[in-house]
Write a protein that binds this DNA or RNA. Structure first.
Lengths: 250, 250
DNA sequence: ACAACAGTGACGATGCGTGAGAGTAC
DNA sequence: CGTACTCTCACGCATCGTCACTGTTG
């Protein structure tokens, strides 16, 4: 029964691969036909078919041809470990994909929801992608529950969230304008107080959240270059001094 | 303010890309530095920085460098359409990923659940991947509700599902053994009757499901080469004749 | 002798990584 | 005069697709 020999085309069709792929596998030594005619024609048998099925299967779960070769020919290969690591790799790629999809989603929502059309689209996309990236970064510092809580708050009360953003922008602008003054002066006290209040509005006084927030800012050395602090170094320094001068703790 | 010029390294760091990538983009004409020194040194400005950000962003949502170039330089490019098609492409890739992950999952479950260890793992993976592929194929013919109902039935009553498989295998084997006989004979009637009963057990008499099933088998010309019918052509022919001879409708 | 099929190169595409060897800026 | 940068080739990787030209089978 196993004597039947197939030419490339028929053999390829049986497994849903192309003739070119078979040539390729032959070159790599991954799948050699059972025999070559003198003319060079390749002839495959059912044993080759079984091996090809294995190759196709392992490709399906994302292994490279080199890995497949090691898997099939290596002796005492740990298949279970391979499955685990492959699964992890696939899931990482899926996370990346999800982030990209979410970014597109929010870009579309922004433009659909009354944003200006045309060239502004790029800006919206940038905004959305930046948000996704920031989210990624935050995930390293905040727990899942905290992240979920933020999202919920923002969703439940979007006006509040926007107001918070505006307040921060405003405050930072004012600090920027007051950089010439003395952080230990009256103006410094006012700005530092408002700063602390905004932080409190964000953490809601939750000590866990405060801890995460501090941890986040303390680790700025490890932020990716792409993350942009919402305020300049000068502003940071000014507020730092003012907080210290007036003994305000956050 | 916009006069500040950056050398490659500094510029690259600001956007989280490599110097080599900047060289690459320069070669492609995707991002030329504001100026070259006579020495050939590249000097980038803040305008370049904005463009680089756009590039990085569009890369994030999965566009190729060529697409990005067309997007940024083409006039009157339809960005919204691009977003839609890109989203569709990403989701397709995600589906593939999910299928692979599910296949690994079931392979792991099979082995964990008392399967033999060692080389058999490959067989398990093949089985899991095949199932995933079949699922994919079925999705073209059955509605989501039908698929969900199948899955639910199988999950709620795994023994029943296994019995169904065994029954089919048995019946097919018996038909195979009776190929020499007359489909219009008594043996043919018995086999055809059982065949119809098994189909009924699968469709539960639901006319929608029956329609989908018929559609599925009628379209066998469009099945991928990798899909293996559970029975041979001869069996199909025999049963077909028997059903017709005895006027059994399915 | 003809059609259908098979063979062997070899370049292309994708997005840079990674040297090698040599010049430049401070 | 170092030292840290920068430049320009140019190969490598992964997986075949796609010619182009030639030989084989039936």
């Amino acid at each position: 029964m196993s004597e039947r020999l197939y030419q490339v085309q028929e053999f390829a069709a049986r497994c849903g691969v192309t003739v070119r792929a078979l040539h390729h596998y032959d070159h790599l030594g991954l799948l050699k036909p059972t025999m070559y005619a003198e003319s060079g024609y390749r002839y495959y048998s059912d044993r080759d078919l079984a091996r090809l099925q294995q190759i196709v299967t392992l490709k399906f779960i994302g292994l490279s041809l080199k890995q497949i070769g090691e898997m099939l020919d290596g002796d005492a290969f740990d298949g279970a470990a391979m499955l685990r690591s492959q699964r992890a790799a696939l899931e990482e790629r899926r996370r990346q994909l999800d982030m990209a999809i979410r970014a597109i989603d929010s870009a579309e929502r922004i433009t659909a929801g009354g944003g200006e059309p045309g060239r502004e689209l790029l800006t919206q996309i940038i905004e959305a992608v930046t948000m996704e990236n920031n989210n990624e970064l935050f995930r390293k510092y905040y727990t899942e529950e905290q992240m979920a809580a933020f999202a919920e708050r923002a969703a439940a009360n979007p006006d509040e969230a926007r107001k918070g953003q505006r307040d921060w922008q405003e405050l930072i602008a004012e600090v920027e304008a007051s950089l010439g003054e003395d952080p230990a002066g009256e103006r410094g006290r006012e700005l530092a107080t408002r700063w602390a209040a905004l932080i409190k509005a964000f953490t809601l006084g939750n000590p866990e959240t405060e801890k995460s927030l501090k941890h986040f800012y303390a680790d700025s050395a490890n932020w990716p270059a792409s993350f942009k602090k919402p305020y300049s170094d000068e502003v940071e320094e000014f507020i730092g001094k003012a907080l210290k001068a007036w003994n305000i703790h956050i």
